[in-house]
Design a protein around this nucleic acid. Structure first.
Lengths: 137, 137
DNA sequence: TTTTCATTTCGTTCTGTGGCGAAATATAGC
DNA sequence: GCTATATTTCGCCACAGAACGAAATGAAAA
């Protein structure tokens, strides 16, 4: 009984039980993003964001598309196991008016205005920008 | 911004991100139960169950009614912050066919057939029954 | 083939949370 | 008042999980 409904449900609720992952889901609302863009908005290490994304993907809450060295994540239009969809809908509506989420969306706009190549360059360890402060938590 | 939507949402998702608490919510589906009845089904220490219930209550996912020394918990018909309700509905429908949940319901029937006074007597540290095996997990 | 580099995996640290038993709380009954 | 007792709070331990940097992966560019 490895994949009982309880297990899948818990996988989803656990995936949703972290503020960074909720922020990621809301960021993906308008459309797909690559990892470096999410990194830029959240202000977390790429490895950390990658882990969050893998947890969301394991719960079928996001889908991934690889293109060359770049990985693009997006919300699923329809999940195979449909149970995740209502959860996403609920989260979205619950956070309609959240301040942090709005700040993230705003930040995303400036990030989207920038070439991802440029973002990644800035995020390299050698860069002098070195992760200029982003609202943590 | 102590009570932002994100915060309330996270409080709910965190409350839902534990199998014992999910089991408790499903146990409460038919109607209110007192703590000792839940203890009997889950097979956990009363203090542990109490903690779980307080987490659920803080997230507005259960309501409490005190009657003498006894505390009765139930699902809310309508939550003040309505945001919790769809989450509960989602969990219920997702777990419609879960084996563990069905086992719990079955066990609950035998527990309900017993006087709560008797349950508590059995659960006392002095009792020789000493938590006769109940499906853990 | 070699280098570059976006992303992931791994190893470590630190915080958060579930579990228990013991003590505290609060209520019923004497 | 005192005792009994259902539940909660507290203190502790063990484990899960979030964060980082370093190393690994794998695809593009040179």
């Amino acid at each position: 009984m490895k994949n009982s409904p309880l297990r899948s449900t818990l996988q989803i609720t656990k995936a949703l039980a972290d503020s960074q992952r909720i922020r990621i889901l809301m960021l993906l609302e308008p459309g797909e993003l690559c990892v470096c863009q999410i990194v830029e908005v959240l202000g977390l290490a790429p490895s950390t964001v990658s882990k969050h994304l893998s947890i969301l993907a394991a719960a079928d809450l996001v889908l991934m598309r690889k293109q060359g060295r770049w990985a693009y994540y997006r919300l699923p239009k329809l999940t195979r196991k449909e149970i995740g969809r209502p959860a996403l809908d609920w989260v979205r509506s619950a956070l309609q008016e959240d301040e942090q989420i709005h700040l993230d969306r705003k930040k995303l706009k400036t990030v989207m205005a920038c070439d991802p190549e440029e973002l990644c360059k800035r995020q390299r360890p050698s860069s002098e920008y070195e992760n200029k402060g982003v609202s943590k938590r």
